[in-house]
Design a protein around this nucleic acid. Structure first.
Lengths: 246, 246
DNA sequence: TGCAAAAATTAACAAGCGTTAATGATGTTG
DNA sequence: CAACATCATTAACGCTTGTTAATTTTTGCA
């Protein structure tokens, strides 16, 4: 499973992971013309794509959404992976209520709003895919609430790992038995609402249980069934097409 | 401030709280014809409105979305108030990943999907309002994540109160200095990820601090500025029109 | 009005997790 | 390759919150 190389491939792969595309839909997406731009850590995507008539499409590298609290702490709200459309919400909401964080060099593409709207109108399959994407975003947020609100440390971190692995796999961006986790333990803490120290303790527990293994940045999953059980992970909320048969 | 009496009024009030409606938009909404139905606690709205071609509109009484966990505990994900469209997501996602809870007798209306789509197409203001509603739903979920993930018990419960009061007020469904809280302490715990006992302790703290007072089901807000400060509540994420001036 | 059920409250105790701070490991840059 | 910064790890301690269970109060209903 090698990762797709072009921006178009990634967008198509993303949309196909959640909806059915007809050959016409795929062709229309392939014919879409846009320029890509490299964004470095600590740069702002919004500033880069300041043209308010353009949508921003994530091509390479994960980003996360977060809120900064008055006391200085951060809460990470979600992760976004290649193929995701980043600012659909800026289309209809004026003020942004959160920030976007970039940790590794990212590649983004900019597409005019009008182009996307025309695309959605002309290709019903694409329009449905956009709607599904938005609604799945919300479904992921709901599961995130369960994670930080109801699970104890070990299943909580296990669940985060399960979600990332499953989503990456659907995009063909993971290895068979693991993936490169682009997160420090401090960031895992900000995503799960746990302190850095406790994240460390908990990861060690997961390793001692032979559920996962760390090899540098690579996170190997030693016991996928066991990890899912520990996390109470049910991928249904991701509404992935590959899971619909199951 | 008395609550509006008809389903049409409530829907219009809801949409006007988040978007600008033209006189034509309002007329079109007034002319919308639909039947309403009473739903009692522990009944399922989805079963009631089993026609998959119809959308369900909440007319009276709050509902909440929740997930049931394998160990039997519940996590409440969000509250919905009169005027909200409940199953936009069933329009595009086949399987529901959560349940809807009804605690007090509700009144709901059913509108065919086609009608809503036509309405959105013919009246651009209404189409924008539907999109904004969906995106604001997600924004509320994000703030909910911050609440359960990052805030300690007292600000956490204070924040829930602030959100409900602000949203009810925007719909003209609150009193000037408080509102009827249709929640038991156990439910507040399920919404905030706290145990019932600790919810009780924390509510007493808030009362001792003279921020709120309980009078039966009525929750009186004694110090609105202080409560917001305690909760670190910034209503911007609700994207309410009434707040845009501020 | 009176009874039963649900909800709120209190107490005692346990434990999971946060905090602080120091040390070791890893990676990065000139 | 050395110096530095970032990140992972460990330890000690305490506090917030959970758990269990009993009691009181309120609510709802006959």
């Amino acid at each position: 499973m090698r990762s797709p190389s072009t921006a178009h491939d990634r967008l198509i792969r993303k949309l196909e992971s959640i909806a059915d595309l007809s050959p016409d839909d795929r062709r229309a997406l392939q014919d879409l013309s846009f320029g890509t731009k490299l964004v470095l850590p600590n740069q702002s995507i919004v500033q880069e794509g300041e043209d308010p008539d353009q949508c921003c499409l994530l091509v390479k590298g994960p980003i996360h959404r977060y809120k900064l609290r008055p006391n200085g702490s951060r809460q990470i709200l979600s992760f976004h992976l290649p193929g995701d459309i980043l600012d659909l919400q800026n289309l209809y909401l004026t003020r942004s209520d959160h920030s976007i964080g970039i940790v590794v060099p990212n590649q983004v593409a900019f597409v005019p709003h009008e182009t996307l709207k025309t695309l959605a109108d002309d290709c019903p399959g694409i329009g449905v895919a956009f709607w599904r994407d938005t609604l799945i975003d919300a479904a992921i947020l709901r599961e995130w609430i369960v994670n930080v609100g109801a699970r104890s440390a070990q299943p909580r971190i296990a669940h985060l790992i399960c979600e990332l692995f499953t989503r990456l796999k659907a995009l063909w961006l993971s290895e068979e038995d693991g993936f490169t986790l682009q997160l420090t333990q401090a960031e895992i803490g900000e995503a799960t609402g746990l302190s850095t120290v406790h994240v460390n303790r908990t990861l060690q527990d997961l390793r001692r249980s032979n559920l996962i293994a760390s090899e540098g940045r690579f996170l190997r999953i030693l016991n996928w069934a066991g990890l899912q059980r520990e996390a109470c992970f049910d991928p249904a909320y991701l509404h992935l097409k590959t899971l619909e048969a199951a």
